[in-house]
Design a protein around this nucleic acid. Structure first.
Length: 554
RNA sequence: GCAGGUGUAAUCUAGCGGUCAGGAUUUUAGCCUUCCAAGCUAAACACUCGGGUUCGAAUCCCGACACCUGCACCA
């Protein structure tokens, strides 16, 4: 498989002439086209069918956003490995009790603490040196001691930090969605398995911002009878059931998750993933990220076993809350009531006659604080406000409780995020494996779906003489003018040319023969059946275009 | 990162201390050829890298890098 990838120009190991680097691969000419076609198919579904907007964020970002997202802390552990049994331990955990505050120590200090106390592995073996396991690539932004920056480990954060802009762009209504195709970077400790675990990888992520109290989805009814293979975390057994049934039984958390499980199924199978080798596995409670309410992975069966290629997570309000906390920006949505409500409440009204003389300039701020409260904040006649960072208790000389009638038009909520996140490299590789077909005599055909195939049509004159090559070149040009990727070939025997196109995954080959010169018709050969269709040369362009058309499923 | 294995052209491989590193596939040019890797003629392309041992290293030794298999790691 990997030899075909290299031979035919799908995937090359990166920097090969310098010895190569593990976890980095380059896409060759066909691989690049295949990747672009898969991404394009994905956009057709998410942008055209679902109507989501798309952005393109930066790869490098300041430390603050990865502090907020949790990646700085979760991705950077100091650890040691036992030389004897190979077990790894968090170095700061081993230093507990030997130092008052082990997680504040640098690598060298921690090393010294462990050495001085002769800390050994439970198996009795010696530990190797303390190492930093930081899965993010660190860099400096700007010259000199510029700000610390990181290459993003996932693309999602670019969408979250743009939430306010996107919320306005999408006319301040929930639900809305934003997609992004881009790169993520993780300095994996030991990448293996070819393009399955990469240090630099391509992701296609969608972030859907939904009402926390209403996770229904407008077109849910269109998909609720669709059947998918699920592996729920309750008994970890494969079951086939409809989306509707799974949502009703509470196996899938909500309608939106269910809807996008189907959208994912539809996308993956359209891209060429074999439905028989595709399932959706629910994360175990222990496996789930701390913020996730529910999470389903699309897994395909490839030579490395069942492999996660898409994760569909209900991330709750975690991301936006974190960024609100760290950035102080307001990342909420305004939920307008159908009818404005008249609400009566006991409000706290400041008495400026007393506040002003005592607090001077701070009185304005206190007013704001008091207005944000209501009578329930009063305990024993006292209400607590913050002045210059210090809590101050105010008695009723400074305020009065009054009954007010207010018209409330809605409430502000932090939207919940549902995230279908796709590993583009893994999807591409799965498509290649599922398309790969080898006959007993070693004849290889890549049965890529026409939609994603790098080359759509091979154009051949039966022989490069008697004017056949002229007609073929004209047809080739006509196809390219319509945006169809072609490959013109007049070398060697016709069989060799077919074989070449079969290995490249080209779905159709058009051949110009002597009959074409007389009657104007050509043959179109189908890659998978090698059957030939005869049609007028003029019909080729519309026929191919019709074959490539994709209907929206919802 | 640890342990073991492997590294010869674009691909698959022969050679395992001693002529110019051999073959097959592929690719290119030409001839031939009326639809599925046909044939003929020519050509292009390799010992992963760096040290060492030796009169002489693709071959033996050491190190680096990459790949494979386990272990560990994998928001």
């Amino acid at each position: 498989m990997l030899s075909l990838c290299k031979r035919r120009g799908f995937i090359y190991p990166a920097y090969e002439i310098y010895g190569g680097i593990a976890g980095l691969y380059d896409y060759g000419p066909l691989g690049t086209a295949l990747k672009a076609n898969i991404a394009d198919l994905w956009r057709r579904i998410y942008a055209l069918q679902e109507g989501f907007v798309e952005i393109d964020g930066d790869n490098v970002g300041p430390e603050a956003i990865f502090k907020a997202s949790g990646h700085v802390d979760n991705f950077a552990d100091l650890s040691v490995t036992c030389k004897q049994c190979g077990e790894s331990y968090r170095a700061d955990h081993l230093a507990k009790g030997l130092h008052p505050n082990p997680d504040s120590l640098s690598i060298e200090e921690l090393q010294k603490v462990l050495r001085d106390n002769n800390v050994k592995c439970p198996c009795g073996g010696e530990f190797a040196d303390v190492e930093e396991f930081n899965l993010m690539f660190k860099t400096k932004i700007g010259p000199g001691n510029g700000r610390t920056g990181y290459l993003r480990p996932e693309t999602a954060q670019s969408i979250f930090v743009n939430y306010t802009n996107l919320y306005r762009h999408c006319r301040e209504k929930l639900p809305f969605g934003c997609i992004q195709v881009g790169r993520g970077f993780r300095n994996e400790i030991s990448p293996r398995q070819g393009v399955i675990r990469l240090r630099e990888f391509n992701m296609m992520e969608a972030e859907l911002f939904v009402d926390p109290e209403d996770k229904s989805w407008p077109r849910y009814n269109d998909v609720k009878d669709k059947v998918v293979k699920l592996v729920p975390n309750t008994d970890e057994k494969e079951v086939e059931m409809t989306i509707g049934q799974a949502v009703e039984d509470g196996i899938i958390g909500n309608q939106t998750l269910g809807y996008f499980i189907w959208v994912t199924y539809d996308f993956l199978t359209s891209a060429g993933i074999d439905p028989a080798k595709l399932r959706f596995r629910q994360h175990l409670r222990t496996e789930m990220a701390h913020y996730a309410a529910d999470c389903w992975d699309a897994e395909t069966l490839i030579s490395f076993g069942w492999t996660e290629i898409v994760g569909i997570a209900d991330r709750g309000c975690w991301d936006l809350s974190q960024h609100m906390k760290f950035s102080k920006a307001d990342l909420t949505a305004f939920k307008r009531f159908d009818e404005p409500k008249d609400v009566e409440r006991d409000a706290i009204k400041p008495k400026f006659g007393a506040l002003g003389p005592r607090f001077k300039g701070a009185a304005g701020d206190i007013k704001k604080q008091l207005e944000a409260m209501d009578a329930s904040a009063v305990h024993d006649d006292l209400v607590t406000v913050t002045v210059d960072g210090q809590p101050v208790d105010l008695d009723s000389t400074y305020y009065e409780v009054v009954r007010v009638k207010e018209k409330v038009n809605g409430v502000r909520v932090i939207p919940h995020v549902i995230e279908p996140s796709h590993g583009l490299d893994r999807i591409l590789y799965s498509c290649l494996e599922h398309a790969y077909s080898e006959k007993e005599d070693g004849y290889i055909t890549l049965k890529l779906k026409p939609a994603v195939a790098p080359i759509k049509v091979g154009v051949f004159p039966l022989m490069a003489k008697d004017g056949m090559e002229v007609v073929a070149q004209a047809l080739d040009k006509a196809l390219r003018e319509e945006g169809v990727a072609t490959y013109y070939d007049d070398s060697g025997s016709i069989g060799r040319r077919y074989a070449r196109m079969d290995e490249a995954g080209t779905p159709w080959c058009v051949t110009i023969d002597y009959d074409t010169l007389e009657k104007g018709d050509v043959t179109i050969r189908d890659r998978d059946t090698s059957e030939q269709l005869r049609m007028s040369a003029d019909d080729v362009v519309p026929w191919i275009k019709d074959q490539l058309k994709r209907k929206l499923s919802c």
